[in-house]
Amino acid sequence: MNLPTSAEITAFHDRCLADPAWPPTEIRMRETDEPVWQWIGENHRNNCLLWAEEDLARRTTVSAEDIAVNKRHIDKFNQARNDATERVDEQLLIGLGLVDTNSARTDSPISNIKAGSRLNSETAGSMVDRLSIMSLKIRAMRQQTERTDVDEAHRESCRGKLARLNEQRGDLASCYDQLLDDARLGRAHFKVYRQFKMYNDPRLNPALVAEAKK
């Protein structure tokens, strides 16, 4: 498996955001694409949908019912975003040879980690997720620098923030590449950390369990 570099991932994120038809209703990948790209796309798509709903949920002149609809959409997209992040981690771990392919999706994966390898607290998939969010922040801040209905002081302030966001994305991209390099060499590893979003599960959320009993 050809593991995606940070440069390839950030270029994909930016290319998607530049497409007027993005986000699509579903991710369509080419047969030649590695499986990991399906989930990088799903993660980015749901982050974009989530971003739009978060903006709408801050409205102050609409009904509480409208905001409730936004909140339900936020929950749905956030869950899908986290699910895709886990799948990115699974695919990267398989590609790195750090986990048995057949057990990668289970809660007890069989690892192939070398002795002495350090455990990285953040997963590569989480970094991909953060890179996606960073691309959205960069686009939004760039749009602020191009506004004509504000004064120059506003645009200048946003240009400074945009420079910092680009620096932060570059730092994160370097950390992602370094983690994968270290993992290839047996110096580091990461695990899939299941989110177990209990509030979205009607079997585990106490409020939903109580509702079901009524």
Rank of each mutant, 00 (worst) to 15 (best):
D89W: 03
D89R: 01
Q91H: 15
Q91G: 08
L93S: 00
L96S: 10
G97A: 04
T101S: 10
P109F: 07
P109E: 02
I110F: 00
S111N: 08
N112A: 13
K114G: 09
K114R: 15
A115M: 06
L119F: 15
L119W: 12
S121N: 12
T123N: 08
G125H: 01
V128E: 04
R130K: 14
L131W: 02
L131V: 02
S132N: 02
I133Q: 11
S135N: 07
S135T: 00
S135E: 06
R139M: 12
R142G: 03
Q143C: 11
Q144K: 14
T145Y: 01
D149F: 02
V150K: 11
A153I: 12
R155T: 13
R159H: 13
G160K: 10
A163M: 09
R164T: 13
L165C: 03
L165F: 15
N166I: 11
N166D: 08
E167R: 15
G170A: 12
G170E: 04
D171L: 13
L172K: 11
L172Y: 07
L172N: 02
A173N: 03
A173I: 04
S174G: 01
C175F: 08
Y176C: 01
D177A: 08
L180R: 06
D181G: 11
L185F: 00
L185G: 06
L185P: 00
R187K: 14
H189D: 01
K191N: 08
K191Q: 08
K191P: 00
Y193M: 14
R194W: 13
R194C: 05
K197P: 05
Y199D: 15
N200T: 12
D201Y: 09
R203Q: 15
L204K: 14
A207Y: 09
